[in-house]
Design a binder for these strands. Sequence first.
DNA 1: CTGTCATAATAGAATTATTCTAAACTGATT
DNA 2: AATCAGTTTAGAATAATTCTATTATGACAG
Lengths: 145, 145
Amino acid sequence: MSKQMREAAAAANAQAIARLRAAGLRPTRQRLELARHLFTGPDRHVTAENLHGEVVGAGIKVSLATVYNTLHQFTGAGLLRQVVVDAARGYFDTNTGDHQHFFLEDEGTLIDIPGDAIAVSGVPQPPSGLRIDRVDVVVRVTREN
Amino acid sequence: MSKQMREAAAAANAQAIARLRAAGLRPTRQRLELARHLFTGPDRHVTAENLHGEVVGAGIKVSLATVYNTLHQFTGAGLLRQVVVDAARGYFDTNTGDHQHFFLEDEGTLIDIPGDAIAVSGVPQPPSGLRIDRVDVVVRVTREN
DNA sequence: CTGTCATAATAGAATTATTCTAAACTGATT
DNA sequence: AATCAGTTTAGAATAATTCTATTATGACAG
């Protein structure tokens, strides 16, 4: 490793430490390793299991529980965002027509948004060989303090 | 019960039977009861557990497994639609900026849609006392044919 | 440096919603 | 009325995640 590379790595590390500190998170070995894997290179989408597999595969000792904790802490700190695409709890809707939903996060209830009220525009062409099955919009609402 | 009411109930039942038959589902006692609960009255959103609680509370003998089976069969038949609002598997995204996603259902992978490409318009005012936390768009894509 | 203490990491148990399995039952058809 | 594929069911199994109780570690004081 050249002096230049060492310096770059050290700088990246210092930056990661600062980022964690700013979020009120102690820059532990595990959190730094996970941050390095997550934030080095282009944007990515990970699940707890696959990130855990990846870092363990890279020879790093971290438990799955810590990966879960860390992902949530990073999300709380605004370093990550959670994407919801599959259902933990199946909600079934008797309205099968074109419409979308408000989701009241505090109560776990749904309210319909008529399909003729709401519109999604600018959906790009899907990757070739794939067709759009449907477009789901969830408007998440919470109590106004 | 008046003759008129008896006739109306019989007609509703006959219609439910026809609807199930058309979907290739045998109109069993359980399926008819569940259909009655689901499709009588205004549109609604149910989970397997709460529908089960409701029908059992009404004195009907159905197992939870049957409720799950039936909800899926009705969904397959186009009588219901599933709404996804909470995460069975947590996907975390390193891109925290404004953007949405393609979800490749066959593979379980995500592709970003830039926030400046896609737009959602016509979101109604949320119910009073609630504020919009965020608007999530998931464009579900599957293999062609 | 070293001790102290709050914070963090961990293994394994527990939880939650759901699906599976294998056996018993039922509705439609002969 | 007998048959039999389609259904229902209880309970076991699964999958992802969270909890719990214990051990370890980083930061700071002295």
